[in-house]
Design a protein around this nucleic acid. Structure first.
Ligand SMILES: [Mn+2]
Ligand SMILES: [Mn+2]
Ligand SMILES: [Zn+2]
Ligand SMILES: [Zn+2]
Lengths: 157, 157
DNA sequence: TTTGTTATTGGAAACCATTTCCATTATAAG
DNA sequence: CTTATAATGGAAATGGTTTCCAATAACAAA
């Protein structure tokens, strides 16, 4: 717990400078949006949230920053199949808050779920071990998503 | 089992006409490539395999046909995160041959695996049931992929 | 604080897989 | 065969993302 809530420099400053990256207005603005907003934002979503206060920050910078944040593991880049990448904050150092996604194929709504995560993670661990051995494959990550119709969309004819 | 191996009209002709689609040279050529080739072909891969024999079939037709085949459930459209969609034949009526994928994040090689599928499918069934109830979400599909480094790529420094 | 090095930036242009458009052609029912 | 229309190909458009580059800002060193 680096600081009391809301006081002092945010915990990510150290992470940034420690890796040789410079801490710029744009990057702080993007991190702020990611930390405070709902999840699953596209680059353009972020751009539009930032633009009123920082009209001089370009979309290009958003993309570049998101790449950096991804590579630092501070942000997950997600693909829900609608042609644009989505990003979600990785929850900092406090709790990993690992979760998977339910994706509505009709309205593209995405639901985070953590139910059954323990059982899933347990099975995943076993599966990863087995696969690693059999295929000599070093697994670093997994992707689990369920697709279907959300409440609203399965209701309408 | 519609026909003895290799004799008579392929089993998919019925499926096509039954849905009101016309059976064209292009569609047959695409199905042939999908049925015979290795899996995970991109639209352009298919185009290049077909082109020597059918130089008048355009890439647009490949895309359109793949959409149709997808919607008929004869082909799965896959996304391994390299910016182009891949397609694999759904194995026709004989056996579903359900499998998941190991994706190398370095060289983009993809390994089909069926190991642990039974356990996975069992857990998936339970999870789907639970999620369906809790979120009132009608699950129709799932996506499971493991990412990491393949044998070759984890070997090189 | 001033300076120098260089990482970072914005904006325009490029990229590129996929889609759209539309006049032409091929399929298959009658 | 004739006919209605599904399907086609090629060019152009689309749209998210990347590339390019001269201008700028961050920050370590002085
Ligand atoms: Mn999420
Ligand atoms: Mn496969
Ligand atoms: Zn929905
Ligand atoms: Zn590899």
């Amino acid at each position: 717990m680096p600081n009391r809530e809301g006081l002092g420099p945010p915990w990510w400053q150290g992470k940034f400078r420690g890796c040789g990256y410079r801490l710029t207005i744009g990057r702080e603005a993007i991190l702020e949006v990611l930390a405070k907003s709902e999840r699953h934002l596209s680059a353009e979503d972020i751009y539009m949230k930032i633009h009123p206060r920082h009209p001089n920050i370009g979309l290009t910078t958003i993309y570049r920053t998101l790449d950096v944040l991804s590579s630092l593991g501070m942000v997950y880049k997600l693909d829900f199949g609608d042609g644009r990448a989505r990003y979600e904050f990785a929850e900092g150092p406090k709790g990993a808050h690992h979760h998977h996604h339910l994706v509505c194929t009709d309205c593209n709504r995405v639901i985070d779920y953590t139910d059954f995560i323990d059982e899933e993670v347990e099975l995943l661990k076993q599966t990863e071990e087995g696969l690693s051995k059999k295929y000599n494959f070093k697994i670093t990550n997994h992707l689990i998503q369920f697709y279907g119709l959300c409440e609203k969309c399965s209701g309408k004819k």
